[in-house]
C-alpha cells in the first residue's frame, strides 16, 4: 500500500455565505486558532471571524506615498537648486509651486505600487501551489461554494475529533486536505 500522505488540514464545504460565517465563528469560539475560510466573494466579518485583524496594507501604502513624494520633490529640487541652477531673470531656484504636479503624481505612483506589492506580499501571492487545491471540490470556491479550513498545525487539531466537530456544523461535506 502507498504511504499515507500527511494531512494539511480539514476542509468543510458550505452552501451559503451565512452558513460559512456562522460556522467560522463557532469554530473560532471552540478554540481553534489556525483556521481560514474561502469564498467566491468578500464576506463582511469573515476575516474577523477567523481571528484576523487588518493592519498592514494602509501603512505600507502611506510609506510608499511618502517615498514617492520625497523622490518627486527631491529630484526637482536637486536638479533646479543644487546640480543645475539656472538664473532666469533672478527668479528663485526653488520655485516649489511648479514642482507640485510632479511631486503629486509620484506620490500617487509610489502609494499605488506600495499598495499592490503589500497586498500581494502579505497574502503570499503569487503562490501557484497550495494544498487546498488538492481537494477537487475546491474548484467551486471560485464559483458558488464556501469552505472552512482547520489547519493541522492548530494545537487543538485531532483528525477524528476535529472532523466530528466540523460535521456538527452541518456542512455539505468534510474533506481531508493532503499536503
Amino acid at each position: 500500500m502507498m504511504k499515507r500522505k500527511p494531512v494539511y488540514g480539514l476542509l468543510a464545504e458550505f452552501e451559503t455565505p451565512e452558513a460559512l460565517l456562522d460556522a467560522t465563528q463557532k469554530t473560532h469560539a471552540a478554540g481553534y486558532q489556525r483556521i481560514d475560510a474561502f469564498s467566491p466573494m468578500p464576506i463582511e466579518g469573515l476575516s474577523e471571524a477567523c481571528g484576523f485583524e487588518q493592519t498592514k496594507v494602509a501603512p505600507a501604502t502611506f510609506i510608499g506615498g511618502a517615498i514617492g513624494a520625497s523622490v518627486g520633490f527631491g529630484i526637482q529640487y536637486y536638479a533646479s537648486v543644487i546640480n543645475f541652477p539656472l538664473n532666469i531673470g533672478g527668479r528663485p531656484y526653488n520655485s516649489w509651486p511648479s514642482f507640485i504636479p510632479i511631486t503629486f503624481e509620484l506620490t500617487i505612483l509610489g502609494a499605488s505600487i506600495a499598495c499592490l506589492v503589500a497586498m500581494l506580499a502579505l497574502n503570499g501571492l503569487p503562490s501557484p501551489y497550495h494544498p487546498v487545491f488538492n481537494v477537487p471540490r475546491f474548484a467551486l470556491a471560485s464559483r458558488n461554494r464556501f469552505f472552512l479550513c482547520v489547519k493541522a498545525r492548530d494545537k487543538q487539531f485531532q483528525l477524528a475529533d476535529t472532523r466530528q466537530f466540523l460535521e456538527s456544523l452541518a456542512p455539505f461535506g468534510v474533506y481531508e486536505i493532503e499536503t
Binding site: S39, I43, F52, Q54, T61, L120, N123, L125, F138, A141
Partner: peptide, 20 residues
C-alpha cells in the same frame, strides 16, 4: 497568481481596492 479566495486575503484585497 494562485488566488484561492481566503477570507484573510479578501480582507487585504478589499483594503487595497479601496485605497487604490
Amino acid at each position: 497568481l494562485g488566488w484561492r479566495g481566503s477570507a484573510i486575503h479578501w480582507s487585504r484585497y478589499e483594503m487595497a481596492s479601496l485605497l487604490l
